[in-house]
Every structure is written in C-alpha cells, then in structure tokens.
C-alpha cells in the first residue's frame, strides 16, 4: 500500500500512578470531531486516561471505539464512569453520553486547564474548522469567531497539502522551518488553488521545504486575520492538531508579535478535557443537592 502522508499518529495513555477505584469523581469527555475523535477520562479533576484516533465514517462507532481504547487495560468500564459528556461536531452521536456541550465551550474550558487561568485567547485549529475564542480566567467563553466554511486554515487543508507534497504530516512543520530565507506566502487562499500554485512552484524549481514554508506561512496569515478580528489579549494558546505544527505556530507567533503558551498535554485533547471537567462540575453539583 502506498504511504499515506496525511495520516497523523493516533495515541493512547493512562496514568500508572492513579488507582481509580479509590477516587471520588470519575468523568469522561468524548470529542467526536470531523477528522479526529478523543476520549479523556478524569478522576477528581486529573487526567487518568485518554485516546486520540481518526474519526471513521460512522460517528457512534467512532465514539465507542475511542472510548474503548481509552479504557483498554484500566479495568474500568463505561458503567464505572459517573458522568460522560459528548462534544464536537458529532456530539449528538455519542450513544453513551449523559449530555452534550458545544465544542467551543469545551475547548475554552480545556484550554484553561491545559494552559492555566492566565489564558485569555484560545485558537482552536481543528480538522474542518478554526475558532478564535476569548475566555475569562475560569475558562468561560466571552466571545468567539469561527471559520467552518473553507478548508484554508484547517487540519484537513494541511492533510491535503502533506499528501500532495509527499511529506508525512508530522514532519511538515520542521521541514518548513529548514530554510535559508522565508519565501512569500502562497497567494491562493483556496486549498484547491494553492495545490495548483504549489505544483507550479515545484515545476519552477522550488524545493519542498520552501513550498511548505510558503504554505505554512499562508495558513498562519489566514488564522491571524481571524484572531485579529476578535482581538488578541495575552496569554495566548493554541489547541487542536495544528498546534503541533511548528511551521504554522512559529510564523503565527511572529505575525502576532507574541509567543503561544507551551502545552502540557496533547493539544488535540482540549475539547474532551473540557467536557470531562464540565462533567465533574455537574456530578459535584448534583451530589451537593443530594
């Protein structure tokens, strides 16, 4: 089979230090996105286990699969979890969820957990959309803007480009930074036209790293315009898959004139973390109410 350059690495993890049976509140967030799905299990507000995989053609199956993978080897079953919240594009298709919350609220809450309460502006670069979110110190959304109409500036756009260039998607960022001089950004916004433009640049003798630099730079500028419209206040952090692409992040930081916070967790987990935290709040509230 031919190598699939767009295919990013799926992952799972669970904490060896936590004995979930001794803990008080167990909640989970399941984020079924258009491109990737995550399940995060939290015990007493700490991440206990997670899984991150590609969304399949069927949302309920994707939700079940990612949850099953997160639980693998932990001895925990879905019934041991006190509260499960579905979020993301496919949130209504999480059969075992107790309720759903929008991904904007969850990403804001998750970013607050990942980056700490100083974060004021979150950029979520997802598979098929991009959101600029302003949050308060509790991780509550105060304003947001979103592009979900156009693949430019989304993970899917980057996948298409990685495939075209024959470069594994995880390497795009580093390769794009391995240049002597920063080229002008690709001038087409549309991914379809940018592909044509890139082929033209390769024919004109540009090396792959330079073409990737031009594309990463165009993508950075694209999301910059979204951030500019909502206004960027420090601290600033990025969630979603593109946060792992240094080629886009570094160029965006340069354009913004500020540095993004360094993530402590896999940036694709933000939505599911936020959902699990909302679940914790709900469990505690209902216990208090008796």
């Amino acid at each position: 089979m031919a190598q699939e350059f767009w295919r990013w690495e799926e992952s799972r993890w669970n904490s060896p230090d936590i004995d979930w049976r001794k803990e008080d509140v167990i909640t989970a967030g399941v984020d079924v996105g258009s491109v990737s799905s995550q399940a995060v299990i939290m015990v007493d507000g700490e991440i206990y286990a997670y899984a991150n995989m590609r969304t399949g053609s069927d949302s309920p199956d994707s939700a079940r699969n990612v949850m099953k993978w997160a639980l693998e080897g932990t001895g925990m079953t879905v019934d041991d979890i006190h509260y499960i919240i579905g979020t993301g594009y496919g949130r209504v298709n999480v059969p075992f969820a107790h309720r759903t919350i929008t991904e904007i609220a969850c990403h804001a809450r998750g970013a607050n957990f990942m980056y700490g309460p100083t974060i004021k502006t979150v950029l979520d670069m997802g598979g098929q959309d991009c959101k600029a979110i302003r949050v308060d110190d509790k991780g509550k959304v105060t304003n947001f803007l979103m592009n979900d109409k156009c693949a430019a500036g989304t993970g899917r756009g980057m996948e298409v480009f990685a495939e075209l260039m024959g470069v594994p998607i995880g390497d795009v960022g580093d390769i794009s930074l391995d240049i002597d001089e920063e080229p002008d950004p690709v001038s087409s916004t549309c991914v379809v036209f940018a592909k044509t433009e890139a082929v033209g640049l390769l024919r004109a003798g540009w090396l792959k790293n330079k073409v990737l630099a031009a594309y990463c730079s165009a993508m950075a500028h694209r999301v910059y315009t979204l951030l500019e419209r909502i206004g960027v206040e420090k601290d600033f952090g990025i969630t979603g898959g593109i946060a792992k692409n240094k080629g886009v992040v570094k160029r965006l930081e340069k354009e913004l004139g500020l540095t993004a916070l360094t993530p402590k967790h896999d940036t694709q987990l933000a939505g599911a973390i936020g959902a699990a935290l909302f679940g914790k709040g709900l469990v505690e509230k209902s216990r208090k109410a008796g």
């Binding site: 258009s34 693949a151 298409v160």
Partner: peptide
Amino acid sequence: AQCVVFAESEVVSLVH
C-alpha cells in the same frame, strides 16, 4: 459543505 475539500468528504459519506 461549501468548500471543495469539505464537499468531497461529504459526497463520499453521502455515497456510503
């Protein structure tokens, strides 16, 4: 979907 890139995926899932 409006975008060509997104519409491609949508058409494939409609066919499925």
